[in-house]
């Protein structure tokens, strides 16, 4: 808890100003996960937040730190396929589906999870 206060200001919608996800977002190098060559070629990577609703995507990397550990504990790991269900307004959370289970993650976390497209089955 040694970090500074996270005076979250909704107007100031900048991911990198938000201390709670700052470290995580900044320290999100795919370098920590040796990228699979096919994944590399798999095309665009983007934050889960920006994925259209109902789209299946593959998780590429997680935020580091505590959030990452909690996501992993829930089974959200690099390589897993998830479906984004919805994103709530006003910087609300993102709901996703993983192995038939719904999981909700906060706005900042949803921007720090990088995913890539997978071809529709």
């Amino acid at each position: 808890m040694g970090r500074q206060s996270s005076n979250f200001n909704p107007e100031q919608e900048n991911l990198f100003r938000r201390t709670d996800s700052e470290e995580e977002a900044l320290s999100n190098p795919a370098a920590s996960e040796p990228p699979h060559p096919r994944q590399e070629a798999g095309g665009l990577r983007c934050p889960l937040r920006d994925v259209p609703n109902g789209r299946r995507v593959r998780v590429v990397s997680l935020p580091r730190g505590e959030s990452g550990a909690r996501l992993e504990a829930l089974g959200i790991r690099p390589g897993k396929i998830v479906t984004k269900l919805s994103g709530m307004p006003f910087s609300g959370p993102v709901a996703l589906e993983l192995d038939g289970r719904q999981i909700a993650v906060g706005h900042g976390v949803s921007r720090a999870i990088l995913v890539e497209e997978v071809p529709e089955p």
Binding site: P93, R101, Q102, G106
Partner: peptide
């Protein structure tokens, strides 16, 4: 705004 520290974000199974 006043309290030091930060609050973690929502990560929950539904």
């Amino acid at each position: 705004l006043v309290l030091p520290g930060y609050s973690p974000e929502l990560i929950v199974e539904i």
